[in-house]
Design a protein around this nucleic acid. Structure first.
Length: 463
RNA sequence: GGCCCCAUCGUCUAGCGGUUAGGAUCCAUGGUUUUCAUCCAUGUUACAGGAGUUCAAUUCUCCUUGGGGUCACCA
């Protein structure tokens, strides 16, 4: 069974890049009928917060990504790590290092001055003497000092590292006894049964170290997939400074979960020419072998297009619910249908949809100067008065078509083009030259409000 | 700097030795629409450079250049 994981450290919100690797992991597990588990890497007490964990969970909930089983917290697993540290110590695969920080710094400076690679020199690797006073030791693992470490990566292919180039006896437990990242990751992944690791390729150079741990402990090495980075416009790793990297910002901006997910799944992955993927399609089609090797630049143009697409295809009653977050309350059934049908094709975000709705629902308090100049000329007021009179006299006014008939009768009687009535009427009703179809607008407003807005407009612009 | 990764339209990408180098987005133009938007149609724009291998390279190899990642008692 395929078991994948998402393992964030809770130092802030859920990042857009993190979400993508989470999505890939989730999809790959689901496609294989496997499991997708969540592990919170909260070993750095100074930087972690419970709020951050909640923020990640909140984002997952919004997007409908659900982790299988219980959430694992590294902070609750110290005894497990301690056990394996002791095991390696007992087996002679790890050792205590009494080198002080000052001593280490000096070593590093010397190496840098000599233009050598900076690395621990193995001073205590085979130390048998009396340890120095006043130094709490760290635990270092005995890493191979020669030979090759090969990462069999599902995205990059086999990546070969020379042990002498990259390895030294790295620290697996700090002076205070707490274990380090590369150590606990390997242990947790192994113990949690994770056999397919999908993560950012900034971890590729960590992987040999983790392999050293796997091998020292006799664990099976999982299949790795290192997904290329998402870059900002400057071509650098996407970071919090780049703006709009918090997943929940997209909710606030009025993006739909399915749009964001669809957008992200196509960043670094593709399935032929297909652009639109429902969640079911993603689950059926996703395969990490189709992840491409190169980094991509984060650019949300396509997200807007996708979001518009999904808004158009969202049922009106769902939109009504979603619009509540944007302070739009739509109750009346038929008006809600007409309004949203008219508006959903024009909005790129829910926020825009809310603004558009407000513009129709709210009686205009001012009129765009340019629009007034263009529309209220010639006999425009006469046309409007005539229209108002006919509207007053009409029998049934309910559907957009009913209002259309009234407009038609004015056009025919006065022998004018539709523009002669459409333009002034639009400005009268909406205060500007653009907007949804007037038939629909009037059907939404109803006779009284329509007449009121016409009279208001004439009064306000008569001179 | 060492090590590692990467390189097709502005952007997201297809391509897995022979293609008029395809799609999407963006942009432009035209059509539809009483307006705007939608929608439809059309168009501009790409294989980083150089050596090989081959009858044939965007595709395979090497080099150069460019970009990125990583080098902690952080994760």
């Amino acid at each position: 069974m395929v078991v994948t994981r998402f393992a964030p450290s809770p130092t802030g919100y859920l990042h857009i890049g993190g979400l993508r690797t989470a999505l890939f992991s989730y999809l790959w597990a689901k496609k294989n009928g496997g499991k997708f588990v969540l592990r919170i890497e909260d070993t750095d007490k100074a930087r972690n917060s419970n709020e951050a964990t909640q923020a990640i969970l909140e984002a997952f909930a919004w997007l409908g990504l659900e982790a299988d089983g219980d959430i694992t917290y590294q902070s609750k697993r110290s005894d497990i790590y301690a056990k394996y540290i002791k095991q390696l110590l007992d087996e002679g695969k790890a050792y205590k290092c009494y080198m002080s920080r000052e001593e280490l710094d000096t070593l590093r400076e010397t190496q840098m001055a000599n233009k050598e690679r900076t690395k621990y020199d193995g001073k205590y690797r085979d130390f048998k003497g009396t340890p120095p006073e006043g130094v709490e030791p760290v635990i270092r693992i005995k890493a191979p000092i020669s030979g090759e470490i090969i990462v069999h990566d599902g995205v990059k292919g086999d990546v070969v590292f020379q042990a002498e180039d990259i390895l030294d006896d790295f620290v697996i437990a700090r002076a205070d006894g707490s274990p380090t990242y590369n150590f606990v990751v390997a242990i947790d992944d192994a113990l949690m049964g994770i056999n397919e690791v999908i993560r950012g390729d900034d971890h590729l150079s960590n992987t040999p170290k983790q392999i050293v741990v796997y091998e020292a402990l006799g664990f099976d090495i999982p299949k790795f997939y290192h997904v290329p980075m998402i870059h900002n416009q400057q071509g650098k790793k996407l970071s919090k400074r780049d703006g709009a990297t918090d997943v929940m910002e997209y909710k606030a901006m009025g993006y739909l979960p399915e749009a964001l997910l669809n957008f992200l799944v196509r960043l670094g992955w593709s399935h032929g020419d297909q652009e639109i993927f429902s969640m079911d399609e993603m689950k059926a089609l996703f395969d990490p072998k189709d992840i491409n090797k190169s980094a991509s630049i984060y650019n949300t143009e396509k997200l807007d297009w996708l979001n518009a697409h999904y808004i158009k295809n969202t049922p009106n009653d769902e939109l009504v619910e979603l619009l509540l977050d944007f302070d739009i309350v739509l109750t009346s059934h038929d008006k809600k249908e007409i309004l949203l049908d008219a508006l959903k094709e024009r909005a790129k975000t829910l926020k825009e949809l809310a603004t558009l709705s407000r513009e129709v629902i709210t009686t205009p308090s001012e009129y765009d100067a340019k629009a007034v100049k263009k529309a209220f000329k010639g006999n425009a007021f006469e046309v409007l008065e005539n229209f108002a009179a006919k509207l007053n006299a009409a029998d049934t006014l309910h559907l957009p078509a009913d209002y259309h008939h009234v407009m038609e009768s004015v056009v025919n009687e006065m022998e004018i083009g539709f523009g002669k009535i459409g333009n002034p009427l639009r400005v009268a009703l909406l205060g500007k030259m653009s907007g949804p179809g007037l038939d629909a607008v009037m059907a939404i407003l109803g006779r009284d409000e329509t007449l009121l807005r016409i009279q208001n407009a004439i009064k306000a612009n008569a001179n």
